[in-house]
Design a protein around this nucleic acid. Sequence first.
DNA 1: AATGAATGAGGATTCATTCAT
DNA 2: TATGAATGAATCCTCATTCAT
Lengths: 195, 195, 195, 195
Amino acid sequence: MATPPHHPRRSDTRRRIQDVALELFAEHGYEKTSLREIAERLDVTKAALYYHFKTKEDILVSISEDLARPVDELIAWAESQPRTLATKQEMLRRYSDALWGAVPLFRFIQENQATVRELSIGESIKSRITALSEMLKEPDSSLSAQVRCMTALFAMHAGMFAMQGIEGDPEEKRAAILEVALDLVAQAEASGVAG
Amino acid sequence: MATPPHHPRRSDTRRRIQDVALELFAEHGYEKTSLREIAERLDVTKAALYYHFKTKEDILVSISEDLARPVDELIAWAESQPRTLATKQEMLRRYSDALWGAVPLFRFIQENQATVRELSIGESIKSRITALSEMLKEPDSSLSAQVRCMTALFAMHAGMFAMQGIEGDPEEKRAAILEVALDLVAQAEASGVAG
Amino acid sequence: MATPPHHPRRSDTRRRIQDVALELFAEHGYEKTSLREIAERLDVTKAALYYHFKTKEDILVSISEDLARPVDELIAWAESQPRTLATKQEMLRRYSDALWGAVPLFRFIQENQATVRELSIGESIKSRITALSEMLKEPDSSLSAQVRCMTALFAMHAGMFAMQGIEGDPEEKRAAILEVALDLVAQAEASGVAG
Amino acid sequence: MATPPHHPRRSDTRRRIQDVALELFAEHGYEKTSLREIAERLDVTKAALYYHFKTKEDILVSISEDLARPVDELIAWAESQPRTLATKQEMLRRYSDALWGAVPLFRFIQENQATVRELSIGESIKSRITALSEMLKEPDSSLSAQVRCMTALFAMHAGMFAMQGIEGDPEEKRAAILEVALDLVAQAEASGVAG
DNA sequence: AATGAATGAGGATTCATTCAT
DNA sequence: TATGAATGAATCCTCATTCAT
């Protein structure tokens, strides 16, 4: 007997909509992706999308909720840890996992910042980034130390897609990026307080 | 007192359109900014925009042509220099100048990558970034050296806007970002070839 | 009494759009007929038209496909017949039926040749006319014999509308036109080969 | 000294506008030809067109007035002649001259009937055609005799452009068309009164 | 004799969304 | 669990026309 409906079992269609939508959002941007396009790709009607989601934005919200959970977990974890360099570096390692675990979503966010900012997910994304950077940098450290911390973050964001210009095994590239990021927070720590 | 030009101020209109358009593009994104909105802000008709520009996209193209020139000049300059560390660092300094000389444009590009990619300016932007990164990194250096070079670039891009969360004088922040970027290429150089 | 279909009269809409569109196209021309006009006449929104047809041009294409079928059938039939005078005359009789069976369409085509030529239906219309005239005239007959054949065709086209200046029963007029056309091909046949 | 301004000498530009306009009207139709297009082809501004003509329609009117004069003269001449077969045939000969003397104009009229009908020139064109056909056909002759007369007219109209599918010297084709037309009125005459 | 700048009206088309079935 | 039919609002864009210079 097939898997019993646990919850009424979030239908397969729902997931397929999310998949296709995310793919198209990431490819052409949120605004340029129409519901017609999504529906056509799935061979269903636009109206079908509305059976599963309240609105276009809601599709995106649901995707983000499902895929960005690891980042929230990482933040929750980090908040319970001592603010040591080791913790910060473990944060980066976990963040790398989270990003590479949902490349299309984070690519979408990276490439549609203007749009995302005006959508309801904008708020939660912003607060996650803020939380992460608050935990990485010491508030009373020098400006360049702070910059190094933020750069560690951006290096991972940008690195995810922009490194396609460099040859090499994806996992090695990811490792290289992480290494640079780890190094940056280490240097930030070393450079000490402002002055 | 300088007599104003014959026609009162007739047609700085073109410039005013560019200004308002860029402001709105940067604020709400390219797709969400309608020509109606631009026209209303300027208190002219939509048709007036079409007198000055062939197309919505053409407005953006013209802005980009006008404001991104310094980057092209920088690339031209760099191509005539020896590939030393000093040259690379001077490139970063000039790039910093170019970026901070047209913040709204580069903010727009940064935050609308998905859109920009599908627009005609996408090609020229991509080729500029490629050119810059080709000149910063040594092709046979280690992966992490290459990552460091690209990160130097991204640090400046992202830094331009994302540093708003950090207190401090803008010029000082810019200097701090540049410093980190300079440091990254220095480290890249130091770490030597792969292996 | 025939039970009307489930949905009251839902979507004979498509047919109604075609009808009104053709009427307006024939009355004011294709370009001067706006979709707003069509929609208003039907008391639906412009968007409703786009539910049923991809494009303004597509409305016309669909009309032409539906109504010009008899001409295609006639051509197919004629191609399987011997090239005798009797065949040619039967062609004209059937062509007369086809034309009078869809007067508004052929009136539209006749009166909007410049427009039609630049539309996708232009090609198919042109090829139909060519096919017909190729089958009516002998390639090696005298110039005036060929002119007579083409004139037989044009007489029917023009006659359909231009004869409104002449009093008399429509069916009688149609018969008179057909008679003249039949006579023209007979004369063409009689006049023999060039020389 | 150059030719003295006779009338202020209807400038050369005026004529050039008419030429280009007629060419484009005939090529793409009246509605699809924009003043911008005309102006661009002449390398002047749209506003310049308005110096020479009150409106778009006025350009067409002026062309028609200039080029269709021969038809009016022919009608005037015919009205002073006896209604014999010889007169009718001379009418056709002169009409052929008039048509072939201004091919683009008559091509335009032929291919844009729907448009022309709604323009001010429509009235004068219609009345000319009516006048001609009234003079060709005897009001109490048989229907088919009348059809033959109108067909003589249409043969010339349609023949002007549609004969491009037939090989042969243009002048010979024109002669062949005229011959058929002459023949048609002769037959009409011969077939006598209705009954 | 012509231009530069602008307008107002209107064009076709697309979109997210709704609702009865 | 979906569809078919439709809407209202908005989009970009084009056009004929005007007028001060």
